[in-house]
Every structure is written in C-alpha cells, then in structure tokens.
C-alpha cells in the first residue's frame, strides 16, 4: 500500500507561498469590491451581500484550497511543448515571449497588430481565483492575474456582425518542439460565442500566484474560461479574430464525438471513454463530485437556457 509521507519542504518554498496568502488577505478585499462592482453592480448598491457571499460571487472558489504553485507549474497540458504532463515545464524554459504581437482581426472597429506591452499597459491586471477542471477529470485551484476579455473586446468594438471570437496559439516549431509532430492540427485554435467571451468571468490571464505567467502555463497571454474544460483556455495567443460563424476548435476537429465546441463542464455528459461525474483535485486522494459548469452555474447557466446541453456538449 502506498502511504504518503509528508514531504520535506525547503524554507525558500514556504516563505513566498505564505507571504502570498497574507498578501491576498490584505489586498484581496479591495480587488474583490472592485470586481464585485463589475460582476454584480446591484449587489454593491444594495449592500446585501456579506463579505463571504461577495467572494463566492466573484471568485466562485469559496472553501477551495489553492493548488500549490509547484503543481500548477509542473503538471500541464500544453501539447506544443510535448504531450507528457511534465514536458511543458521541461521544454518551455527558453520560449521567447518578447517581442510578442497579438493580431486583432475580423469584425471589429479597431483591428491591428498590438504589442503585448500595449495590451498589458492598457488593461490593468487583477486577481481571480478560479477552479480549473480538465476534461481528463482532474482539477486545480489557481490564483490567476489578468483582465476580463470583455474589456479588450469593448475596446476593439465588435461590429454587429461579430457572433464568435476565434483565438489562435503561436505556431513556431523551432520553439515549440511538440509542433514538430502532427499530434494536433497546428496551430491550436479555440473559440467562444461572443456572449461567452463578454462574460465577466472570462479572463485573459497574464500571470498566476502574483507573478508573470510561466511559459508552460501559456505566457504571455492566455484565455481562462473557468466553467469550461481546460482545453478551451487556449495558451500563448497570437491572434484574436471576431467572426460571424462558429470557429473550429482543435480538439473538436480531432475528435468531435469526444470534445464539443462548448465543452462546458457537465457531470451528466460523460466523455465516451471516462466518466465526468467525478474529478480528482490535485493533492487529494478521493475523487470529489464534479459540479455543473464547474460550480459557476449561478453566474453562467443563463447563457445556455435555450441550448440542449446533451447535444451541444
């Protein structure tokens, strides 16, 4: 039988983590109030939410313990750097994230190539603690840094014809060894319906644990959609395109019966090869039940009222 011994943790590992938690306590409140104003403007005016309720409404991760930094940054699905979970941390060290340009294209008033510095300067980052549920039935809790995608979209002004947003990852086999084999149809693409993209929970992440996004987590800019399976949260984005028709998405293209375009976390729709009813939170032994929309049903269920979730999984 395997009996887990408590691991020896070096001093240097403990201090930043503890400091980080302290820091959160102090600056968290301010951020939360600001965020709450965005998510639930009525709540602040009415003042009818307690601090805890406000936190739950905003971060949706109440009572969830943060997944240690080590796991968040050493257990990754980022096939551009290899298909093993440890490959990205091993192979992404020299990945160059500067200079970096994001092309904004399609149905919007301000198309163009934007330097990452312009984007980071224009949209100040805030902290969001989100659960991340992988389609492989494991999950993490990650304190992201980033800005709401809706801010960027509001700034580029989608035209009335824009119905979807398509995202593309960098294609550079020289730097991304995983792209030298055709495991997926490179470059990786993903998409959201415009209302999903405009949802206040949808985040463009630029960092985690209070620091710049590590390369293996999708530096310098990635999407985070906490109520969808992790593969929707496309990494190392170089193009954002506003389009009229439903864009293709990489996993959906590879295996449409296994990975849908919407890919909302749904314990009632199993992956053909495994159950989605339960998940293993990294660091825990027993599986826990998976929650509808990854526990963000109160915030996002209304987006899908007219959608048959069994068909549009």
């Amino acid at each position: 039988m395997l009996i887990r011994k408590p691991k020896k943790i070096s001093e240097s590992e403990i201090t930043p983590y503890e400091m980080y938690l302290d820091r959160r306590k102090f600056i968290g409140q301010a951020g939360r109030v600001a965020l709450l104003a965005a998510v639930a403007p009525g709540a602040l005016v009415a003042g009818d939410l307690t601090g805890e309720e406000a936190e739950a409404a905003v971060i949706g991760s109440q009572g969830d313990e943060l997944t240690p930094f080590k796991h968040v940054t050493e257990y990754n699905n980022f096939y551009e750097f290899g298909t093993g979970k440890a490959d990205p941390a091993r192979n992404a060290g020299d990945f160059r994230t500067r200079p970096w340009t994001v092309a904004i294209e399609g149905q919007c008033e301000r198309p163009g190539d934007y330097a990452i510095e312009d984007i980071l300067g224009r949209f100040p980052s805030e902290e969001r603690v989100y659960r991340l549920r992988c389609v492989e039935a494991w999950s993490m809790v990650i304190p992201w840094m980033g800005f709401p995608l809706k801010d960027l979209l509001a700034w580029v002004q989608p035209t009335s014809r824009a119905k979807y947003v398509e995202f593309t990852t960098l294609h550079d086999p020289d730097q991304m060894p995983g792209q030298r084999r055709r495991v997926l149809d490179w470059p990786y693409v993903e998409g959201l319906r415009l209302d999903e993209a405009m949802h206040p929970l949808t985040l463009m992440a630029t960092g985690l644990y209070g620091q710049e996004l590590p390369n293996q987590n999708g530096a310098p800019l990635r999407l985070v959609v906490p109520w969808k399976y992790g593969f929707k949260s496309i990494k190392s984005i170089v193009r954002i395109r506003l389009v009229e028709g439903m864009p293709s998405s990489s996993w959906n293209g590879l295996a449409p019966t296994e990975y849908g375009f919407f890919a909302n976390v749904n314990p009632e729709v199993d992956h053909p090869r495994w159950s989605q009813a339960r998940e293993r939170r990294l660091g825990e032994i027993r599986r826990r039940p998976t929650l509808m929309f990854n526990g963000y049903a109160d915030e996002v269920a209304s987006l899908y009222e007219s959608l048959d979730l069994l068909r549009w999984f």
Binding site: L2, R4, K5, K7, K70, H71, E74, Y75, K85, A86, W138, R280, L282, G283, I285
Partner: peptide
C-alpha cells in the same frame, strides 16, 4: 520517486 518528489502532482495517475 515517491519518497523524493511524491511521484509528481498526480501520483495516483502516475502510479
């Protein structure tokens, strides 16, 4: 490996 790095982030899957 289990004694040194706990078999990574997801030891059950790894084992």
């Amino acid at each position: 490996r289990f004694a040194t790095d706990g078999l990574g982030a997801n030891p059950i899957e790894e084992a």
